[in-house]
Amino acid sequence: MTPDATRKIEARQRGNALGFWFFRVSLRAFGLRGAYGLLYIVCSYYVIFDRRAVQAARAYVDRRFPDHGRWARLADVYRLFVSQGKNLIDRYYLISGVGRFGTRVEGEARLRDVMQSGHGIVLLTAHVGNWQTIMNYLGAFERKVNLVMRPEDNPAVRESLGIDRSGQTIGIISPEGYLGGVVESMNALGRGEVVSLMGDRSYGFNPVEVNFLGGRAWFASGAFHLAAMAGCPAVVLLSAKNGTHDYTVEVVSITRPRYQPGIPKREQLAGWVQAFAQVLEEYLIRHPYQCFLFYDIWQKPEVKNHPLET
């Protein structure tokens, strides 16, 4: 695919309006724990009947738990599904104002320095933990955050996550648009805004091969290229759920990637992406059931022609 074409990122949708409505009602009627209780039944269904969902989760589970047997790995998949279900319920809990979570921030002083500088920031996250808690936390800095993400085309998910209600402090830059949203991203960084990208899945657009969880995986490289070209810091921010009402947002790393003359840029990019993969791996060793990638990033993707990804 060339950048002239409008690309479409394939993503399987699960859940429907009735299902989300049911969880919302349960949340209001029985609270967080009550809504979580339903998950154990729903996730059992997916583990037993949705082979594609299980297969998608196994790509991560097999590498994260290589010493687990067949049934233990199936239990790992189940725990992952439940964990992601809680994640979705928590997002709604936050957005709807039903309640709040206690959020502990590790490395806040470093982040505060960067956020208060007024310059553009590339925020690098991953399919780990709950990005809504990160957005909630960043809201205190009153900086516009642009999420590079495909427009949510499942109306039920879109409505449930409150994407339309996010207001002016959160913008969406579509990686499906012309040139993968790079021009909009550069303009946003130039205005001193935050541009947030997922770094752990390339969707085949300028992927970089890295060592990750004992294998060779393919990660996205666009975030570091943007940071290097715009002269911005790249901040890796991840969140993890610690208890029913507790989250931790961790400032995992803050780097300032800059291209050095005489070394091929793609070689330098690969080094930065590998460093990101390393910190992500260390994070998942500490939080094994917070990885919601559900995609085999260890399989070489069909290379396309765009750099940005969500």
Partner: peptide
């Protein structure tokens, strides 16, 4: 510039944006 021509990709597009800004003082809004 892209695809069949010079074969540039969107990593290169970022660089073109920067070239336009830094060397010509022009932004694509």
């Amino acid at each position: 510039l892209f695809g069949e021509g010079l074969g540039l990709d969107s990593l290169d597009a970022v660089e073109i944006v920067v070239i336009l800004q830094r060397h010509f003082g022009v932004e694509v809004k």
